[in-house]
Amino acid sequence: MTFDVHAGEIFGFVGSNGAGKTTTMRIMLGVLAADSGQVRWNGAELDLQARRRVGYMPEERGLYPKMKVGDQLVYLAKLHGMSPADAASATEYWTDRLGVGARRGDNVEKLSLGNQQRVQLAAALVHSPNVLVLDEPFSGLDPVAVDVMSAVLRERAAAGVPVIFSSHQLDLVERLCDRVGIVRAGQMEALGTIDELRTTDRPRWLVDVDAEPATVLAWAAGLPGATAQPAPDRPQAVLVELDGATPGAEQRLLTGALALGAVREFAPVRPRLTDLFRHVVTAGDAEPTPPEGSGSRSRRARSEVAA
């Protein structure tokens, strides 16, 4: 499990249930010990002192249910080394910023799950961390809360903080993240920007020409190295897949389409992150699944956080 996260970057850490995301995050924070490898920060192994500067939001929420929100956040901030005055000031700021300022005097157990989630994020932010590691931070949030949390993560990244978060909401990951890592069976299977991950050796183009669809389909299917099929939900359009290694193939495609008639639409069709995710996590599913403890949830991790 090798990857790095840069200063000011939002990194999406995605994979199916049991892929190893939470295990990797726990190793980063020292909750679990790795069998081998290192977690590094600015070139040095991440030690206890450096971990005090990490903001961590666990998947299993770590709030004390019978403790008041404000008292709890002040307590947690002081554990990170803040003075009582600074802890109180930071608690007030983050609870207001995340929309739970009016609930500082309430016990956590009296809050809705969404508001508990906001308080949990405040707990990760209250000590102004140098790194944010968030495990499923958007789980159970309504759209307004998702917008608030997304804005906060962008702000922290803009301030130079590396942000790592896991999520099954792939549309949100695609919209929010600078880079994405897709994990399967404890290993990093795909890593890059959204554009890099969506780039394929066989680019596809949607071609909508003012001509008989059968004529357009027959013409496209006859192009060298191309395959063609009717476009889903677009009976007048054709989906053409080209050989990306052939220089100028898309220009010849457009020129040929114009010769058939007026081109109403000519656009690249690239896979969404959901499609990439489905392809990566189902690859090799015909093979037997390793039993628990044999590597499918290996605690081995070798990760680097670089800023």
Rank of each mutant, 00 (worst) to 15 (best):
V183G: 03
R184P: 00
G186A: 06
Q187G: 07
Q187I: 06
E189H: 08
A190S: 11
L191M: 09
G192W: 04
T193G: 14
T193R: 05
E196W: 04
L197G: 03
T199H: 06
T200E: 12
T200M: 09
D201L: 14
D201H: 13
R202W: 07
P203Q: 08
P203A: 09
R204H: 05
R204E: 14
R204L: 08
W205V: 06
W205S: 04
L206N: 02
D208C: 04
V209P: 05
V209H: 05
V209A: 05
V209R: 04
D210C: 05
T215P: 03
V216D: 06
L217Y: 13
A221G: 15
G222M: 12
G222Y: 11
A226L: 11
A226F: 05
T227F: 06
A228G: 10
A228P: 15
Q229V: 15
P232N: 10
D233C: 01
R234A: 14
P235L: 13
P235E: 10
V240S: 05
L242S: 10
G244R: 09
G244D: 11
A245S: 15
P247N: 13
Q251T: 14
L253D: 10
L253H: 10
L258N: 10
A259I: 07
L260S: 09
E265Q: 15
A267T: 14
P268A: 13
V269E: 02
V269H: 00
V269W: 00
T274C: 00
D275R: 04
D275P: 07
L276W: 01
R278L: 13
R278A: 08
V280H: 01
V280M: 03
V280A: 04
A283W: 04
G284I: 02
G284N: 07
